[in-house]
Design a protein around this nucleic acid. Structure first.
Lengths: 144, 144
DNA sequence: CGGTATCCAAAGGGATACTG
DNA sequence: CAGTATCCCTTTGGATACCG
């Protein structure tokens, strides 16, 4: 392997053009890249759970709050704004009284959520192995 | 659709047994579930980048530090401990002088990293759309 | 109902110094 | 090289109160 090129292993995942560097344009490993911020919105503590919840269908604010157990109003509001700004969530407000607002994934958001859920389900599925590993670790090392 | 059953949409992703509730045992949407903690280790700011970096091959501590641009010694150390405890990363220390320690993914870690990278690469790939959405949002709303 | 504003405590996280 | 320990500032995030 080429020792002088640290990114030599990268291959274009879904490159559209013939440009071989297209997949490096938004390298999340680079500190200043905007993709890192977006990735954090998606994978963050509440962002990931919110996207996961919305993948099952459109939900209202307080429905979401109950579904994403433990999230505060403030954090849910903040999370939804970020995801809406990134174009992953659509906010549908009806000017009725009392007000009714529905949140749903955009087409792009749905694609993100699918990949995210593949990861989430896999982790859930392998929790027994993880729990085993944690026990072994805690026994031999300090109890964390 | 069954309005009374909020989890009705869930399907077993990689269910091994015939138990239909096997995929609910470690539900990440429940506040107290240990899977949520593990998911945060995996998707967290530094955890995700560390797993991503190690997917390309075994790396030493300072190699990792350079690869994951912006991480501090403290955070990298902490992150590696968490991932090792979860059984996703293996630490190979050689008692030489100067010391040499290599970090590499375990088989389980590799499976996690694959799903994680699918998400990361997708986000990187769609950054132009995300950036567009952000611009539209910032124009119509306040500048965040 | 669907939020925003404010306050404050707790955790996150960087810089530096130091050890084996 | 591969970390740990300490200091200290910054961010996160919960609780509460309030508004349309």
């Amino acid at each position: 392997m080429d020792e002088t090129s640290p990114r030599s292993a990268r291959k274009g995942a879904t490159a559209v053009e013939g440009d071989p560097d297209a997949d490096l344009a938004f390298d999340v490993f680079a500190k200043a890249c905007p993709s890192r911020r977006t990735l954090e919105d998606v994978t963050g503590r509440w962002g990931s759970l919110t996207l996961g919840a919305l993948h099952e269908g459109s939900l209202r604010f307080n429905e979401l709050r109950r579904r994403v157990d433990g999230v505060s109003e403030k954090m849910l509001s903040q999370t939804l704004h970020s995801l809406e700004r990134d174009g992953l969530v659509h906010r549908e407000a009806q000017p009725t009284n009392p007000p009714r607002v529905d949140y749903e994934l955009t087409p792009l958001g749905r694609e993100v959520a699918e990949r995210l859920l593949a990861l989430i389900h896999f982790v859930e599925d392998r929790m027994p192995s993880v729990l085993d590993a944690q026990q072994s670790y805690d026994v031999t090392r300090g109890t964390r």
